[in-house]
Nucleic acid binder design. Structure first.
Length: 648
RNA sequence: GCCGACAUAGCUCAGCGGUAGAGCAGCUGUUUCGUAAACAGCAGGUCCUCAGUUCGAAUCUGAGUGUCGGCUCCA
């Protein structure tokens, strides 16, 4: 029924890994980096400028080189200039790769010592000189074998490796070794397929941002290089806007706001696990009860299963082998147990607890299970990457003929839930990967059903070929937050193999024969921790009324108004509103300021005038002064706004 | 896990070999006040932990713990 709007929902991105699909897991940090991608909306104008300064080479070459966005050529050129500067300051430095990325570029180096912030300044200074010199970028084509000699001569071992790979790849494809290209500007020359801008003078305003370690080719068994990140834009205004956006993102950081709004805290006695304070817990419960309401309305039944589970279960599910490193294990009386990292195997246990009839399906089990995953210490990050969390998890067991309707309903649930927050979901349909389990016919059928459901609901989606999990095709849901950062929120996975086969799930059909059900894994918020973290940043702490931990503060002007303030608060609370009275000794102005800083949606000042008329005129946190209304009317109005779950 | 940086009062931060500081918050008192900060006083710290160097360590060294920025958008 809520299929009218583009579907929403996302299953927690963590969940997919749950099913071993580690690759699909996007970390928060990565998403944040993508954030900037959005900034490009208004770039048309500088694109023209760049086009006026075409990269060397024909349009075809540019296309071959995959130059989708002209500004990438400038960013990549900036990377070359940075490499020039680094080589100048550190002769003998070895170069890794230096691509253009979302809002800038990076280059990886092997250097004799760690870089410091001061080094970044020196490098920037050298870069400016190179830009001022306006060196032309010159493309030089060199046969691969010659290129290897050059790279070896320069002791550029990483470039040598890249060339060796190119040769190997060509050999594997039965082709002759390709001609490689070098780009030179001034004293600098680098193996590079291009394209570049015409000359270094075409590089716009830039800034080096940070240094970080990065494994060569992302492989932790390879050497760790030093990566310098930089950003570059066509105009000063764009650079400033980007830097402003970074600063804004920092201000909205949920780790900062979590302290400021007293929502949660982290402590080294349990790294990666949040301590929820009363106000944070109120948000939690609000989201949870909204979801429970939706689930009950849509025929879910809630279950609850143990956190501490014998390893036998994980061996059967396959987690013990495939996910073991991520599980917390413990031993008791000679038996080995684990804290559950996922709910799904135990929901299968519940399913199997009795014989199921085709009449029982679909079965929709939802569970707010507390999960533990032993994430590597270096990856922990606020609420977005934790070791303990709770999902709004559910597992649906359906007959094949019910799958389409269930998926359609799930898309509707996603749409509905995301509309509560004003989030616009985007969908990606991930199909069968090369390495997949189960009957190809079932895959084909499942994919067809997913596609039908997506098409029927009229949502827009992209297809990510071969991006499904090894046991299931899936629908991934993404959102862009208020700063344009992309987050993968969830996944709807159609599991044909893992729960049904491994746990030998069956139901008895109308002919008395055993059949396999299909399992759907889904979570709409995903990890509540992560979801709340994203909400904090999306709303910058100014939650919609229905979510706000404190919805209204009653502000008595003087002590003699305290009693009436309590009475008004009682009226509001009787309608289920979360209301506090500021009975501190401060002045009214100060109380407003405090409420404002706490991002409380409504501030209700109570003085002689209001008390006499038994009215109240709320001030919104946007600074709007609303007309006076009676206490009961106000309470009814705010209660109605709350239950509407509007996103503003 | 790995590379780098950081860890001082509840919060934000200064101090960087010689007796621990500020603002805000807190507490007490005064003030009773009309839409983003009343005034005064008081209190508050194993300077992350453990070793080491030193006459002396918040400050230097080492180890540990935690946090932050990252760890292929493949020439």
């Amino acid at each position: 029924m809520r299929l009218e709007r583009p579907a929403p929902r996302s299953q927690r991105r963590v969940e997919p890994r749950e099913d071993f699909d580690l690759s699909s897991c996007r970390t928060g940090g990565r998403s944040i980096r993508r954030e900037a991608r959005q900034a490009m909306a208004d770039q048309a104008q500088h694109e023209e400028e760049i086009l006026e300064a075409p990269a060397r080479g024909s349009a075809e070459e540019l296309l071959d080189a995959g130059a989708h966005d002209p500004i990438d050529a400038m960013r990549h050129s900036a990377a070359h200039v940075m490499a020039e500067a680094v080589l100048d300051l550190f002769p003998g430095a070895k170069l890794g790769i230096g691509p253009a990325i979302a809002d800038g570029f990076y280059y990886d180096f092997e250097l004799p010592r760690p870089l410091t912030p001061d080094d970044l300044e020196s490098i920037e200074e050298r870069m400016r000189q190179s830009v001022a010199a306006d060196h032309r970028f010159v493309r030089r084509e060199i046969p691969l074998d010659d290129a290897r000699v050059v790279a070896e001569g320069q002791a550029q071992t990483y470039k040598v490796e890249i060339l060796a790979d190119l040769a190997e790849r060509a050999a594997a494809a039965g082709e002759t070794p390709p001609v490689t290209s070098f780009y030179e500007h001034g004293p600098f020359s680098d193996l590079c397929k291009g394209p570049h801008v015409e000359s270094t003078g075409r590089i716009g305003p830039f800034k080096l941002l940070s240094v970080a370690g990065a494994y060569w080719r992302g492989d932790e068994k390879r050497p760790m290089l030093q990566r310098i990140y930089g950003t570059v834009w066509a105009t000063r205004e764009e650079l400033d806007r980007y830097l402003w956006r970074r600063a804004e993102a920092k201000k909205r950081d949920h780790r900062r706001l979590g302290v400021q709004l007293d929502l949660f805290s982290f402590h080294d006695i349990s790294p990666g696990s949040a301590f929820w304070h009363p106000r944070g817990q109120r948000i939690w419960r609000t989201l949870e009860s909204a979801m429970r309401e939706l689930q009950e309305r849509r025929g879910y039944e809630e279950i609850s299963t143990p956190i501490l589970v014998h390893k036998k279960l994980w061996q059967q599910s396959g987690h013990w082998d495939l996910y073991g490193d991520n599980m917390f294990r413990l031993e008791s009386e000679g038996q080995e147990y684990s804290l559950k990292p996922m709910n799904c195997p135990e929901s299968a246990v519940v399913y199997r607890s009795r014989l199921r009839s085709y009449r029982d399906l679909p079965l929709r089990y939802n569970e707010y299970g507390r999960l533990h995953r032993n994430e590597r210490s270096g990856t922990l990050s606020g609420l977005t990457r934790v070791r303990q969390f709770i999902q709004d998890d559910a597992h649906l067991f359906v007959r094949p003929d019910q799958l389409a309707a269930e998926i359609e309903a799930l898309l509707g649930e996603v749409s509905e839930a995301y509309s509560w927050f004003g989030l616009e979901p985007r969908f990606a349909f991930a199909t069968k990967p090369d390495k997949a389990l189960g009957d190809p016919m079932l895959w084909e059928r499942a994919e067809g059903l997913i596609r039908d459901a997506l098409d029927r609901t009229g949502v827009n989606y992209v297809v990510k070929s071969k991006d499904g999990t090894f046991y299931a095709p899936k629908i991934d849901i993404y959102i862009d937050d208020a700063l344009g950062r992309e987050w993968q929120m969830a996944t709807i996975q159609v599991d044909l193999v893992m729960l049904p086969e491994r746990f030998d799930l069956t139901y008895i059909d109308e002919h008395g024969a055993e059949q396999r059900p299909i399992a759907i894994h889904r979570a709409i918020y995903g990890s509540l921790e992560r979801f709340i973290g994203i909400l904090v940043e999306h709303f910058a702490g100014a939650f919609p009324l229905w979510v706000a931990p404190v919805q209204a503060v009653v502000i008595p002007i003087a002590d003699r108004h305290l009693e009436a303030a309590g009475a008004l608060a009682a009226v509001l609370r009787s309608r289920g509103l979360r209301v506090e009275v500021d009975d501190s000794d401060g002045r009214m102005q100060n109380k407003i300021r405090v409420a404002q800083e706490q991002k409380v949606p409504y501030m209700i000042v109570l003085g002689d005038r209001e008390i006499e008329a038994r009215t109240a005129s709320p001030r919104t946190r946007a600074g709007e002064q609303q007309p006076p209304e009676g206490w009961d009317d106000l309470a009814a109005r705010l209660a109605a706004e709350t239950s509407a779950r509007r996103p503003d």
